[in-house]
Design a protein around this nucleic acid. Sequence first.
RNA 1: CGGGACGUAGCGCAGCUUGGUAGCGCGCAUCGUUCGGGACGAUGAGGUCGACGGUUCAAAUCCGUCCGUCCCGACCA
Length: 569
Amino acid sequence: MRWSHAFIPTLRDDPADSEAVSHKLLVRAGYVRQLMSGVYSILPLGQRVRTKVIQIIRDEIDAIGGQEFLLPQLHPIDIWERTGRINTMSDIMMSFEDNKGAMVVLGPTHEEIFATVASELTSYKQLPQLWYHVQTKFRDEARPKSGLLRVREFTMKDSYSFDIDREGLDLQFDRHRQAYMNIFSKLGIEAFTVEASSGSMGGKESVEFMVKGDVGEDEVAHCTNCGYAANLEKATSVLEPVEDPDEVLQTEIFDTPGVRTIADLEAFEGGAPAEFQIKTLVYIVDDEPMLVLMRGDHGLQEQKLMDMLGTIDARPAVGDEIVSLLGAEAGSLGAVGVQDVRIIADDALRGRAGMTTGANVNDKHLHNVSVDRDIAVSAWADIREVAEGDTCPTCGEPLSISRTIEVGHIFKLGTFYAEPLGLSVLDENGKSAPIVMGSYGIGVERNMAASVEANHDEKGIIWPMAIAPYHVIITVIRPDDDNTMATADSLYEHLEDRGVEVLLDDRAERPGVKFTDAELIGVPLRLTVGPRGVTNGIVELSDRRTGESSEIAIDEAVSAVADLVKAAL
RNA sequence: CGGGACGUAGCGCAGCUUGGUAGCGCGCAUCGUUCGGGACGAUGAGGUCGACGGUUCAAAUCCGUCCGUCCCGACCA
């Protein structure tokens, strides 16, 4: 491609509406343009990268036996009603009425559709199957952000496995895990896997692929010593025991004017340290109010609570709801003596005594609360959010917490979809058996952005060879010099003949502009061809990542570049 | 959905407080001089000032409503 005929609109300034590095660079370097919030046009350079990312994914999934489909993006709403996910996904589903008045949704994901096709599977002899597609998903995210990292219309490869039993699922799951790691490696992304909550996807076990990055939306607890890593939505840690007083006293009410928070009560004369307080939270779960008790210095991890309750609908109660339930306002709440309300308590409170908590009377608290004696706990669970420095559950070393970008997520769905959609086959005994499913997703544009987050410097993008829009850019210093341009043209043609993808910068621009643009768009190799060198039979070969350059004979340039490209792919 | 910021030429911004014929830089077009790290000079093109309504002799500027975009949080495979 000749740059003089290409549409590569580079910008000198960062766009005003960008924060994330990948967003700034992909816009400035002419890869994407925003149409509306969370919706982007992919420009020619971006499309070349996107196509390569897709092909890498396709090759890996084909290698583990995947069969590619093309599925509808328009879904009748009733298929979403059948699995019940109309309720769990409705917030992000784009839907509209067709001309006949039927409700149609733009597919946010395709479990239901693949499962419908899979209803034609009738015998265990047809299993296992591995099906996938690479298509646009529409999700009306409440808050698109960070350029391509969180959008409302995007491309995803999702695959679906169908097996007769758990063992088959486990095998397909492990193959995907390896395929995904291969993919991330080619994309220049240092991904690691973490245990994750499955959220609204259904199923029990899932693994997320994460890459560290400040713009990420997830937080992961990990142990550098033993390699333990889990999403904060699921992470656990070992608790240091607290010494409770030996003497068990009667509860005692006392005045705490103006005390509203754990910290207030710590500072209050006659108060208590946070680890001797019980934090009482009121939650509305599936329209039912309940109390959630935490140790004063611990935070609730809502997803752990939701997973434990098997719900996807939970929210903190608001002022009126709290007062009508407990008779006091937030700041003076407690669970002592509360009847007929479900009380979920964090494991950290088991057996604790000598605790302080709200009295359910404004500006009053209770001393000497023994959890077992005074509170009618309905259920115990680990619902505490792991904090930086907590003790690793597997090796005992301190955990650290990092922000991460989720670049892939794989799920063992089990029979979650098989049952409502009637997916079953006859087993070898002629008995009906539900199909065991897995689903495996990876977002294409998000991974492009994640790769930029991981591969850039102050000058611009540094693409890994495998997904670079071009392998090499030929920067012509004086395109108006016939000898120089002829040399550049010849190099261009010979490189293309060797299968190297070349961008020929033949624009009538000053050298500085061309160098800056070349570095911004991030082509891995650069050949600089100028009159001075051409006279001496020399061109310059430079490496975008290291910044190193060397002079090389014109005769050898094609082979040298072709070899470097080959070695890097 | 809660909180905050913003909306003026392709891009980045000033002007608004104190109403009076819309500006700067970059980019773009033509010509000339330049040319191995974002050149210089000259001449130009380009804007319903987000939309609608109100106040006023007069609104980018004041008032109201709406729309849009970004950031933090909630939310979220």
